[in-house]
């Protein structure tokens, strides 16, 4: 065997021992302190991955969570907005009522101040007479 091959093998053995040590430590952590966790457990884990990208159960939980969040948002935003809208409408309604009453009152006083119909007719005749003069010779 060439000298380089021997050195490569020694390097490989060192790397392998280091990797084994790290692998053992990880297996120990996973199995809660006891070595020999074994492939049987792993087989089960592979059959049903711990972190599946898509899981119907997790999907359902997310749907329910989203619905609950939407309900909370509705309660927090929509309900106060409705209450404000209702209060504004009542205010407007009372303002309109007040305004109409005032208008009616003003209209009544205006009508009361109007001159009688005969006076109006005389005023109109005067006004028409001023437009169509009769003392001019054509």
């Amino acid at each position: 065997m060439r000298r380089d091959d021997v050195r490569d093998k020694a390097l490989g053995a060192l790397l392998r021992r280091a990797a084994e040590t790290a692998a053992e430590a990880s297996e120990k952590v996973r199995s809660g302190g006891a070595l020999g966790y074994g492939a049987a457990h792993l087989e089960g884990a592979v059959a049903s991955p711990r972190h599946p990208r898509f899981s119907p159960g997790r999907f359902r939980v997310r749907i329910v969570g989203a619905a609950a969040l939407a309900a909370c948002l509705a309660a927090a935003i929509v309900v106060p907005a409705l209450a404000r809208f209702r209060a504004d409408r009542e205010l407007l309604s009372s303002a309109a009522e007040h305004l109409s009453r005032s208008l009616i009152r003003e209209s009544s006083s205006f009508l009361a101040e109007l001159p009688a119909a005969s006076e109006l007719e005389a005023a109109a005749a005067d006004w028409a007479g001023s437009l169509f003069r009769t003392d001019i010779d054509l």
Partner: peptide, 18 residues
């Protein structure tokens, strides 16, 4: 990183199997 956090190796291996 595997020495600092042996759990990381499990996560990576699990992801590899998946």
């Amino acid at each position: 990183a595997a020495r600092r956090d042996p759990g990381l190796l499990e996560d990576a291996l699990q992801e590899g199997y998946r």
